[in-house]
Computed example of a mutant assay.
Amino acid sequence: MDLYGKDLITTQDWGKEGLDEVLALAKGMKKHRYEEPYTEILKYKTFFMFFYNPSVRTRQSFEAAATELGGHAQFLEPKAMRLKSKDKAGETIEDAASIMSRYGVGLGIRILEDAVEQYGDGETLLREYAKYASIPIVSMAHDKYHPCQGLADLMGLQEHMGDVKGRRITMMWGYSSMVRSWSSVQEDILLLPRYGMNFTLAYPEGFDLDPEVIETAKKNAEKAGAKFEITHDRFEAVKGADVVYSRNWMSPKRYAVGKEEDQKLALQYKDWRFTSELNNLTNKAYFIHPMPVDRGNEVDDEVASGPRSIIYDIAENRLHAQKAIMALTMASGWK
């Protein structure tokens, strides 16, 4: 499958063949990390990174990825640029996308809920850049999805479990005051059932995710011969699970009531934590998390740092998955 020039805004936009190609290349790049021809793929080429929201691993992994491919990643903050917004005059998306397409080979954008007014605004912005740019647009996490994290999660599970078809993952809401985005969890909700994983989603009443995403995930699961279920009982949810992903996410009220009020909603569920007690109910489950982990709230420290935790492997896989994405979408004729 030819992925050159293709945008990656969510894995749902790509066929499974393309995703498999990324995963296979990422595993090869991990094994032969500093060897040719991988180190020459983006030689002398520039990848632009727009950060509407700050990050740690995203910036580190994308900059390292560009460097290891022989290229350069340029860090940009829109607030320091003359870009048109609702409140100020400046360069339009059409103009910015068209000009950057003359300078670089790809553009990554990170825009989460703190940088938008309504859910979906970040996705709209990415797709508008994709409309006008002649270079690939890659989501570095936006208000709806985080495709690079989803691919890193899947890559890590495949490395530790082999074929994930028929294995069971429980994604469980975990208490935190951090009021986290939906992007990472919704990406996995879409992606992992496509690979045949039985998916259990567990959360307290009032912390529903995007209903359209849930419906698509159910269809993905049905097509792959997998199960998708939702429960509000965390004890039942983890019984027999092969993988547990315990992470906080905001409520649907976040955009209307603000971050502080959403923190108050979460306070009544401080007992929602992936504890050692819950871990004992699983099928010796692997623990995954996109990080940073809110230890002692989302998950017990001994689980997050336990022998079945693969959070560091997955964090490393962000680098390799992103290298593969960049190589396949930004380097003409390279496979």
Results as ranks from 00 to 15, higher is better:
288 I>L: 06
310 I>M: 12
292 P>I: 14
270 K>H: 05
289 H>E: 05
280 N>K: 09
190 L>M: 07
190 L>Q: 04
299 V>C: 08
304 A>P: 04
272 W>F: 11
300 D>E: 10
280 N>A: 13
206 G>E: 06
235 F>W: 08
330 M>P: 01
281 L>Q: 08
207 F>K: 05
292 P>L: 12
305 S>C: 14
274 F>I: 04
271 D>W: 00
317 N>C: 13
199 F>H: 01
263 Q>V: 15
319 L>N: 09
266 A>C: 02
227 K>A: 13
217 A>H: 07
285 A>Q: 12
285 A>N: 10
324 A>P: 09
195 Y>M: 04
207 F>G: 06
231 T>I: 13
292 P>D: 12
270 K>M: 11
305 S>V: 11
240 G>P: 11
204 P>N: 07
328 L>Q: 15
296 G>K: 08
300 D>S: 11
231 T>F: 07
243 V>Q: 03
228 F>D: 06
279 N>E: 12
192 L>D: 00
238 V>C: 07
302 E>F: 04
214 I>S: 09
274 F>W: 00
204 P>K: 09
302 E>G: 08
277 E>I: 04
202 A>C: 14
281 L>R: 06
284 K>F: 03
261 E>N: 10
311 I>F: 05
323 K>W: 15
189 I>M: 05
284 K>L: 07
190 L>C: 03
196 G>W: 12
320 H>R: 15
219 K>A: 13
265 L>F: 11
233 D>P: 14
